[in-house]
Every structure is written in C-alpha cells, then in structure tokens.
C-alpha cells in the first residue's frame, strides 16, 4: 500500500489540527475532513489484514519462483520490502514465460495475479 500508512496518518493528524483552528474556509474544511474520513476508513480496513495478505502473497510467489523460505520478521515494512522483491522477480518471470511460449507457466502466474488483486481488494473498490 503506497503511500505508506504511517506517513499518511501523520499527515492526516496535522491536517486535523489545522482544521480545528478558526479561520479555515468552510469549503476547504469540508473537503479536507471528508477526504480524511475516507482515508481513515481505508486505513482501518487494512490494519488487521495487511500482514496476512503480504505473508500469503510472499508464500505464493516464492512457490512460483521456486524459492525456499518463509517470512520470519512480521513487521509490515519488512514484509512489504520482501513483497516488492518477489513481485519484481515475478514480472521478470512472467515476461520470460511469454518470450519462450511457456503457456503453463503463464497460466500459473496469471492465476496468482488474479488471486493477488482479490486479496488486496478494498470493500469500496469500483472493480
């Protein structure tokens, strides 16, 4: 999830302080607070599930790439860095499977990509 949640929450905290002060034009206050509420709702939805999503996804991609290992450090920043590494390697593997015409491998990668977008899907997402 990018921008990272901690950075966004820090920004929203500052924004709430600003909007608690007098003199902020009403339309700007309404816009800021409405968007802040929507973002807090997204952050709340991600809070409980994010580590699980990353661990599950990292495991699935490792299996596709034939890599051993498990996530030992469960901090979100560490899981995300490993996820970035693995998904970067998956992009390369997918392109290679297309270049060699390996349709079975392409199908396996597509299946994981569909599953990944399903895991990450927000309840309010338009697709």
């Amino acid at each position: 999830m990018n921008p990272p949640v901690p950075n966004v929450l820090a920004e929203l905290a500052g924004l709430l302080v600003k909007n608690a002060m007098p003199g902020v034009p009403e339309a700007e206050r309404a816009s800021d607070l409405g968007l802040s509420a929507a973002l807090l709702g997204v952050a709340a939805e991600m809070w409980d599930r994010q580590a699980h999503i990353l661990v599950e996804e990292n495991r699935a991609v490792r299996a596709l790439l034939g890599e051993p290992g498990e996530d030992a450090d469960l901090r979100l920043s560490v899981l995300q860095a490993e996820n970035d590494r693995l998904r970067g390697a998956l992009v390369v593997a997918h392109a290679a499977a297309e270049a060699t015409g390996d349709t079975a491998r392409q199908d396996a990668i597509w299946a994981e990509l569909v599953a990944a977008t399903d895991r990450r899907r927000l309840s309010t997402a338009p697709v």
Binding site: M1, L39, V42, L122, A125
Partner: peptide, 19 residues
C-alpha cells in the same frame, strides 16, 4: 489528501480493471 486517495483506492482496482 486528494493525492493519497486515488493511490490507495484505485491502484489495485486498476489492475483488476486490466484483468
């Protein structure tokens, strides 16, 4: 905040749209 919302709400949805 308008810069955050599209990224959080739409990046994964956009990949689903491509699929």
């Amino acid at each position: 905040p308008i810069m955050i919302y599209p990224a959080w709400w739409l990046i994964n949805a956009q990949e689903r749209a491509m699929l």
